[in-house]
Design a protein around this nucleic acid. Structure first.
Length: 320
DNA sequence: CCGTTGTAGGGAAAAGCCCGGG
DNA sequence: TCCCGGGCTTTTCCCTACAACG
């Protein structure tokens, strides 16, 4: 895996003009502040000790960041601005050269792929990275208190945290992950080599672990061993049952960092987050209109089908 | 009122990966 | 050391309901 070159602060700092800032709505301004604060918090984490600058204070207080006719980072006095940038860049410099004492960290925007330089692992949503960062910082993840309570053993942190823990004898030479025994390492190495020794004789799908093949086999047999004791619905995997059970308990462990709205499943949160980012990945190939949800696109495409049908009708009516 | 769109709730299926215990 | 079962996490696709809007 290629080590990620540290980006400069300018790469991630969005510097709006006052006019551009005026075009942003409240949620977009809040998003900007949150992203900047998060990026700066990463700086703090990697050893940047002089963080309580006016900029951060302004961000935290939600103050307007502009002086007439100048952008955010230019709105501070020249000396302060350059000192701010120098300190930021110095931090990046430290992170580049002193990897033994400080975990190097690059800074991410929400839309960019996120990568932890410690392992070179990728994290698609920034929230996932945030959670990953907790493996370094021991901070509490961004999930509801209710969920924290229910997960008091913090098992959701264990897998990755243990990756970084010391005293593991078997380390993957490709990604650096460490395991307490070498058979676990060998199994992990298959994720790099693509080796999948357990093959389904029905469909040919192959898996690294025998238990995964067994799990897969249930899709052929239709067997659903996990039953909801409340409504009797059955599921092929225990995790799918747990997901379902949240519809009974009302548990919503996934919380939007921007508006605080909570969701019962991760994918619902990500779908919701697109309402903040404005991301619309689903585009109609006929008219180019974009949608944030796949189903909305399909529904929209149906309106084109209606047009087509109407066109056919009008064509035949023209022939009469 | 109707058609369209934005958004969210939830179901279903599946896969990847890890851990602990036997 | 290996196998196994269980668990956690994530992804993708789908259907549907409801509200807002023109």
């Amino acid at each position: 895996m290629q080590p990620l070159e540290s980006v400069t602060f300018e790469d991630v700092a969005v510097d709006f003009t006052q006019e551009e800032w005026a075009l942003l709505d409240t949620s977009q301004r809040k998003l900007f502040r949150d992203v900047m604060l998060e990026n700066i918090s990463h700086l703090v984490f990697v050893g940047y000790q002089h963080c309580k600058l006016d900029v951060i204070f302004q961000l935290e207080q939600g103050e307007e960041l502009w002086i007439e006719g100048r952008g955010f980072f230019q709105s501070h006095s020249p000396g302060r601005e350059s000192a701010f940038k120098e300190e930021l860049l110095a931090t990046q410099h430290i992170s580049k050269k002193d990897t033994s004492t400080i975990i190097p960290m690059t800074f991410h925007t929400p839309e960019d792929p996120c990568e932890c330089n410690d392992l070179g692992e990728d994290f698609s949503p920034s929230s996932t990275l945030s959670q990953h960062l907790l493996t370094h910082t021991e901070k509490t993840p961004n999930i509801s208190k209710q969920y924290q309570k229910s997960q008091s053993d913090q098992s959701y942190l264990n897998p990755h945290k243990q990756i970084h823990s010391r005293g593991k004898s078997c380390e993957c030479h490709l990604c650096g992950k460490a395991y307490s025994n070498c058979s676990s390492l060998r199994r992990h190495e298959m994720t790099h080599t693509g080796e999948k020794p357990y093959e389904c004789h029905i469909c040919g799908n192959a898996f690294i672990q025998s238990s995964d093949l067994r799990k897969h086999n249930l899709t052929h047999t239709g067997e659903k061993p996990y039953e909801c004791h409340l409504c009797g619905k059955a599921f092929s995997q225990s995790s799918n049952l747990r997901q379902h059970e949240r519809t009974h308990t009302g548990e919503q462990p996934y919380e939007c960092q921007l508006c605080g709205k909570t969701f019962s499943k991760c994918s619902a949160l990500r779908r919701h987050e697109r309402t903040h980012t404005g991301e619309k990945p689903y585009e109609c190939h006929l008219c180019g209109k974009a949608f944030s949800q796949c189903s909305a696109l399909r529904r929209h495409e149906g309106t084109h089908n209606g047009e087509k049908i109407m066109n056919v009708f009008s064509k035949y009516s023209d022939l009469r």
